[in-house]
């Protein structure tokens, strides 16, 4: 079974982002970028499947500008076998990414012996869309196991435990299938120095959306990006009695 893992390069989760003064977007120049944290979890899961003998190859793919290769190199250092960069400078919206991924699934023959798996992150922490995996599953006509906290591949099917609002849900999906990784699926490994060196020799293919026959033009137009409303500064209270007094008499919250 081949596993395809789409990874996105995003502003590092520790960076306090700044909205551009002209309201056109968020400042990304000279900002630390990393692989989307959920995608690290997806890569880890795929690599573990391979290590457990349940997968034959782990292919990582990113859709974005040339610099997104960094995310691929990180994934290769974690143990993925090879990378694909689908290069575009366009803003990549989930529907477009899903179409690119569908084209790659077809090209790589993930469906060939009816057992492929695509593991994505559940959400990119820049656009916070939480859409791409579900859209890809729709386009492929495959079942989807979103927000996964446990993934157990078996013969012709995969059992996925999902984090839902009320607790946990378990579903059994026929392979091929799409899974999206939640935070508690695993703890991604740190790439060791030797593996980082080895990753430099692993192959990365470069393609374009055009070559795959996919139109990636955005469907949603961003009219403006603004700072959220700021909370007014609060006060420190000296002790519990003062807190209770404030809550009862000023805020009338209890």
């Amino acid at each position: 079974m081949k596993i395809l893992v789409p990874v996105k390069r995003v502003v590092d989760y520790n960076v306090k982002i700044r909205v551009k003064a002209d309201g056109s977007g968020v400042e990304t120049a000279n900002v630390k970028m990393s692989m989307n944290p959920f995608d690290e979890i997806a890569v880890e899961e795929a690599v573990r499947c391979k290590e457990a003998g349940k997968a034959t190859e782990v292919i990582v793919v990113t859709v974005g500008p040339a610099a997104s290769q960094e995310a691929l190199r990180t994934a290769l250092a974690m143990g993925a076998d090879r990378g694909i960069l689908v290069q575009t400078d366009a803003e990549t919206q989930p529907l477009a990414v899903a179409k690119v991924l569908k084209a790659l699934v077809d090209k790589e023959g993930l469906n060939r012996n009816g057992s492929g798996l695509v593991i994505l992150g559940k959400q990119a922490i820049d656009d916070d869309c939480n859409q791409t995996g579900q859209m890809l599953a729709a386009l492929l006509g495959w079942p989807q196991g979103t927000f996964a906290s446990k993934v157990v591949p078996g013969e012709g099917a995969v059992t996925v435990t999902r984090e839902i609002d009320g607790g946990l849900e378990t579903v059994e999906l026929k392979l091929p299938a799409v899974v999206t990784a939640d935070l508690r699926l695993n703890e991604p490994r740190y790439a060791s120095l030797p593996n980082i060196m080895k990753a430099k020799k692993k192959p990365i293919d470069t393609l374009t959306p055009d070559a795959l026959g996919v139109d990636v033009a955005p469907r949603l137009k961003t009219l403006k990006v603004a700072e959220p409303a700021k909370r007014k500064a609060g006060v420190k209270v000296a002790d519990v009695a003062a807190l209770v007094d404030k809550l009862k008499n000023d805020a009338r919250a209890i």
């Binding site: 529907l95 939480n130 859409q131 579900q134 729709a138 979103t146 839902i164 609002d165 469907r219 949603l220």
Partner: peptide, 22 residues
């Protein structure tokens, strides 16, 4: 919700339209 987020992007892709989250 976890249910809405699970379903609507799948619907949107089948309709070939964008989904607008949250």
């Amino acid at each position: 919700t976890s249910e809405g987020k699970n379903l609507l992007p799948r619907v949107a892709a089948l309709l070939d339209v964008a989904a607008i989250s949250d």
